[in-house]
Amino acid sequence: MSMAAPDTAALAQQVSGSSFYTAMRLMPKAEREAMFAIYVFCRLVDDIADDGTRPRPERATALAGWRRDLAALYDGGAAGQAAFLAGPVKRFGLALADFLAVVDGMEMDVAADIRAPDLATLDLYCSRVAGAVGRLSVRVFGMDEAPGHALAASLGHALQLTNILRDLDEDAAMGRLYLPRERLREAGIESDDPATVVADRRVDAACRRLADDAARHFAEAEALLRSRPRGRLLAPRLMAAVYRALLDDMRTMGWAPPRRRARIGKPRLLAIVARCCLLP
């Protein structure tokens, strides 16, 4: 059975003040509304994956409901909880496969708590939960397919790896550990128990190696943006700049316990926005 339409007003309040919200506010109305619809979809399916109060089979059933409603949306049927996506899908030609890839990523979290995946599995996870969102977004930005997909891949991975490095303790509290086993082994850590790993001072070395991976993805994205492909590029430039600043701050602070969560304050965020707006 399809669920009710989401409370978009409540979600708007939750995202208000974030760098994502700032980027959206700088976009034309149609693009802003489409990006917010994509955000709402991602937030709703992510909330299902992260809902520790419900058993895994129930969460899997909820994600299957999204699959049915998305399929109905593209088939012209009653789209249920996915109905709010109809306008952006039609206006910007958003692909069903990309929405379903995001659901695939959420199902990876629902099937079992991810703990020290190998690099190939982490790459797949990033491609689903971030790269697919990027592919939806670059359609809204009006980018051509080849540079758009390249940007979605590089910037999506950069943002997701930065999130993993920032949310180390929050994820461990949920029983998850996204740091790849190869980086942990290089740091001398054999355990894949989240609480054990985040309490180990050697986790700093593993995180620094993953931060190097994120920095390479940022460099690829920034080079592509500097090539000035066709499209409205202010939003991806802003997201890249904000998250790159977060990554740089974390590299300075390090990841040895106890850690502080890296944040970009409002004055600094406004300065980043101003700098991005001045770029040609």
Rank of each mutant, 00 (worst) to 15 (best):
L73A: 11
F36D: 05
D46F: 05
D200G: 00
A146G: 03
L168Q: 00
A4V: 14
A206L: 10
A150Q: 12
P257Y: 10
L155R: 05
R25Q: 12
R181K: 15
L11Y: 07
T61F: 14
R115H: 08
L122R: 02
T22Y: 14
D144T: 03
A78W: 00
P280A: 15
L279A: 15
L233N: 05
A158L: 09
G80C: 12
V45Q: 02
L94R: 05
L269R: 08
R208H: 11
T61Y: 10
E145N: 00
Y74G: 07
A152F: 11
L278G: 05
T252Y: 14
D169M: 06
G142T: 07
R230M: 14
V103Y: 04
G87P: 00
L73W: 07
D123M: 06
R228G: 12
E170N: 09
L247I: 13
R261G: 07
W66Y: 09
A12R: 13
F141V: 05
L224P: 03
S2F: 15
R226I: 13
S19G: 11
D248H: 15
L26W: 01
V133R: 02
D51S: 14
P88W: 03
G142P: 06
L94G: 06
G93P: 08
T162H: 01
R176K: 13
V103D: 03
A206W: 03
A64P: 00
V40I: 14
L85V: 12
G265C: 00
P117R: 00
A72K: 10
A146W: 00
A60K: 03
Q13P: 00
C126V: 10
A241R: 08
D109W: 04
R251W: 12
N163W: 07
A83P: 09
V203G: 04
T22Q: 13
V129Q: 04
A37V: 09
L210R: 02
G148N: 05
L85N: 08
R181P: 04
A120N: 01
D200I: 02
P88A: 06
D144H: 02
A12G: 10
F84R: 09
H157I: 08
A37F: 04
D50M: 08
I164L: 11
K266W: 08
T121C: 01
H157P: 00
S154T: 10
A219R: 13
R176Y: 11
R237C: 11
G188P: 00
D118N: 12
A241D: 08
M27F: 01
R244P: 07
A205R: 10
L279P: 00
L161M: 13
R115L: 11
A37K: 04
S19P: 06
F92V: 07
A5N: 15
M250S: 13
R54H: 14
A120V: 06
G80F: 08
P236Q: 13
